[in-house]
């Protein structure tokens, strides 16, 4: 099944020569990488390196101009975002994209949209199948709310929560879909140390206890080196390095990319 020699598990996501241009801007250029089943895969790189664009291509938000992307050996390069969500990929955004007017609970129930089936007629009637489905999924959502320690806030409007909590709710909404691949775009950005530690714990728990494959973009090198199995480094749209955290840290190209960029992110 796997074509990457030496790896034990199977490959969850294959990126094959993916490229994306915006007008004259080469956002992603010829990136090839594998994300292994069950791992935490980090994408790092200076601002504007093309990390978010890479994630956007995986989640179907953009389609690659060249190359392709395979999820569980299924070509998703030209599949739309709602379809990709239904296939089992969920994500969070760099700029939180919650349904601000809705409660935490409603946001998470929406996360389960792809897992629910109730059609129009059953919705009108409600009592019976629709209600049973609601209750069943509500139970699962409550477990996630518990897991994320959001119990007291389940009826609070998501938009009224503090920034760090909103990030947590967005993670919850993605988890609610029970994805097999979870994409996190800077889940810890803008958080204080304590919130970061909480978030790290949630991410690791999801990965270890639920076995969910996770790809995340993160600027905090300490966090990245601690939690990832593999790291891919991007700069100016290209993949400049990939390997275990230790390998990447020692790569001269990585050090140069970071020191060469105008804003110095802390390289551990």
């Amino acid at each position: 099944m796997s074509d990457t020699a030496g790896s034990g598990g199977s490959v969850k996501l294959k990126i094959r020569g993916a490229a994306k241009n915006f007008g004259g801007v080469r956002a992603v250029a010829n990136v090839t990488a594998d994300i292994q089943e069950g791992e935490v895969f980090a994408i790092i790189g200076p601002n504007g390196a093309g990390k978010t664009t890479m994630l956007n291509m995986i989640s179907g938000f953009y389609h690659p101009d060249e190359g392709n992307i395979l999820f569980e050996d299924h070509d998703i390069s030209n599949v739309g975002p709602s379809k990709i969500a239904a296939l089992g990929i969920a994500r969070t955004f760099q700029n939180i994209a919650l349904f601000r007017g809705m409660t935490v609970l409603e946001n998470m129930m929406l996360g389960r949209h792809v897992l629910m089936k109730t059609g129009v007629l059953a919705s009108f009637v409600y009592w019976g199948p629709a209600q049973r489905e609601e209750v069943r999924h509500r139970e699962r959502v409550e477990e996630i709310i518990d897991f994320l320690n959001l119990t007291d806030l389940r009826k609070a409007p998501a938009g009224a929560l503090a920034y760090g909590l909103q990030k947590r709710v967005e993670l919850g909404r993605a988890l609610a879909a029970e994805p097999r691949l979870l994409l996190l775009d800077e889940p810890m950005a803008g958080m204080n140390q304590e919130e970061k530690e909480d978030m790290v714990r949630y991410v690791l728990d999801v990965n270890q206890e639920w076995g969910t494959t996770i790809a995340l973009i993160e600027h905090d090198m300490g966090v990245v080196m601690d939690i990832s199995d593999h790291v891919m480094v991007m700069d100016m749209g290209e993949k400049i390095s990939q390997g275990t955290p230790d390998e990447v840290r020692a790569d001269p190209k990585v050090i140069e990319a970071y020191l060469g960029s105008t804003d110095h992110k802390e390289v551990a």
């Binding site: 379809k83 969920a90 349904f99 007017g101 409603e106």
Partner: peptide, 19 residues
Amino acid sequence: RAFVAIRDQDIAAEIIGIN
């Protein structure tokens, strides 16, 4: 809920699997 999601944030709605 899907209707309200589209009203509030159509991009996020699409990403969580609402066509």
